[in-house]
Design a protein around this nucleic acid. Structure first.
Lengths: 209, 209, 209, 209
DNA sequence: AATGAATGAGAATTCATTCAT
DNA sequence: AATGAATGAATTCTCATTCAT
């Protein structure tokens, strides 16, 4: 049972496939999924449409691949940022900053694609589904992070806390990066950080840095 | 120079126009902007495409109208909810609940269209622009609300606070209504409320209801 | 529930639809179903492809319409020929000739389309199905015709007789009209007529004309 | 000037070529000429498309080869069946049965391909041409057979008789095997046999088996 | 004013065939 | 000789929009 789409066995094939993925990501970022057609993607990848369709069943499947790769890169960034330092040695504010920064960093990966990723999350059930899985992983990681400093926390429902914190961060990041928030970025991030800190941590802690 | 699209002055014309708007809203909600075509809208509105195009320059313009009307309904709901009671007479928790409820109510208006509204916010600059204006109004209103209890607040940058609070609420509402959050709604709302309360208010207040 | 394809309400629409049907029949006759594309059909009908697809869901559906109309014309011709005279007043040979001629006439309607009709009968289940229904009607009519002279017949299983007679005629007609039989038409028709006469009728009859 | 397509001289090459022919026959049978693509054929034959095209100039040429081989097998079967016994020793009914059986047997070879063979006979001039040649051979053989019992025959134009008899048989076989005739096979075959017997043979003969 | 017929650019996709490795 | 990557013309079909009646 041979697959309908080609699985490259030769170096050349792998390169072609990758160039399509790269071209697609650029174009989806710039012009959106609906604003980009397959001919254009093939053209920018320096490839014929024939090749396009021998590597990807259709534009949607290609999008899913780009999307998944993007989400994987995002999650890697987030995990890397959150695991950079021994969390339990850090002060509250630093921990909160680290959480925010990790998400900020993930959204700096490719702001254009990030925007289109959201479009598709809201528009397409399959994309939404995958997005949900990633969210769950990110939240699980955040729960893990919080558990390491559990004795300093005031919140008890760590899962719910992780979820609302991450919602707050993500939406604020989008408001800054995508929606041109009318307030300066720093005021928003400061407010965000303060909100999260007060929510999560007990007050007793010495005003750490 | 007469305008290209008709401005109905008679009762009949206004009804036709409204039926198109209603049909469009239903279809955009169910199938999205790209998934709905003008013939379908006209058909559901019980109108010929000829008429359709004499009332609306094109599909995008129609969407904008539907979108604007929707956002106006949303903002009315939010303001109404937040002004229902004399805010300064309420306890902290009640105020926070009122804020959350007002936004929840706004998103209950039409969950389907709400979803598509987000799609278009992320996808289309013009929609994004209008969305931004509404956000600003909502945040201004929230600032106003907060100012009424300013002496009980711990936050000082009310504008930034309003922005992050509203981000947190909106994203959490979406995670519940649109993204099928894996946690039960109540745990999320409780966590959200607690986060907002601790962020905004001084601790000293008696544990009010 | 509006149908997907347009049902013409205006005179113009009916003319357009008919011109597409006519163009399709010509082109299918000349170049076959697979050898003709929708653009070509639209072009010959003097119509845009847009119109083409608003009247016919796709090429296959159009073919079916042309095919059905053609088969109806055929069956009308066959019935008309067989009912032209009071059958019981005719001699054996005349009856047989009338049967053969009726089928010959039906295949003279449009030899090109007749050929393509056979292609599709063998190739496509839906076409085969409809073909089968028509065959059944033709055979039923032949049975009816035979029953009018039943006392002069030697065959008893009229249905089977009608079927094999009509098979013999049809294939011989095809061998003449489509397959360029190496023998002159008259020798084939004479042999065919003799075969049918001897099969169906008792010998006792005076050598009628 | 070497031929464009390879003529295999080694065992390996011959096997490859045969496997392509076999795969093509199966696929053409199941999905038709137009419904089968070259990649699929190559795939089923366990061969690269590169190889495919080094053995066969194109898909049509491959079809012709499969078709010719099929027709050869058919003709062999027919001849073998008709020559199985010394014809002049048989009774009329047996002879007729033998003729019918020989053609039935030929169409049992591969009903699926038989169908597609007819499609292409009607659709393609080159196929039609070859089909005609085979028909002529079959009819010549039938004439030969009949000549062996010429004194018992009533027909004089043996060539025309052979042609119409074979037409009757073939179409009836198709109506049974391909077109799902509404009558049971046996009634059709009985009627067919009777028709042919009465046509060909003098009545005087003793009711032989 | 209303209707719905007509348009045609443009999008997705397929597949026979070639050719570099 | 064999492979399978690459090609791109060709085809089907959609849909926003215009315009004659």
């Amino acid at each position: 049972m041979s697959p309908k789409t080609r699985i490259p066995r030769q170096q050349r094939g792998i390169e072609t496939r990758d160039s399509i993925l790269a071209a697609a990501r650029e174009l989806f970022s710039a012009k959106g999924f609906h604003g980009t057609n397959s001919k254009e993607i093939a053209g920018r990848a320096g490839v014929s449409i024939g090749s396009f369709y021998s590597y990807f069943k259709n534009k949607k499947v290609l999008f899913m691949e780009v999307f998944k790769a993007y989400k994987q890169e995002q999650i890697i960034r987030i995990l890397r940022e959150q695991n950079r330092q021994r969390i339990e040695t850090l002060g509250r504010a630093t921990i909160v900053r680290a959480i925010i920064e990790s998400i900020l960093a993930a959204h700096d990966l490719s702001p254009g694609f990030d925007r289109e990723a959201m479009v598709m999350c809201y528009a397409d059930p399959e994309v939404k589904e995958y997005h949900g899985e990633i969210e769950r992983q990110i939240n699980a990681q955040l729960v893990e992070t919080l558990r390491q400093v559990e004795d300093r926390l005031r919140v008890t429902d760590l899962e719910a806390a992780a979820a609302v914190v991450s919602n707050a961060v993500v939406m604020t990041v989008h408001s800054i990066k995508i929606f041109d928030a009318p307030l300066p970025r720093d005021r928003l991030i400061d407010a965000l950080a303060e909100m999260i800190r007060r929510f999560l941590f007990k007050d007793s802690e010495a005003p750490a840095g």
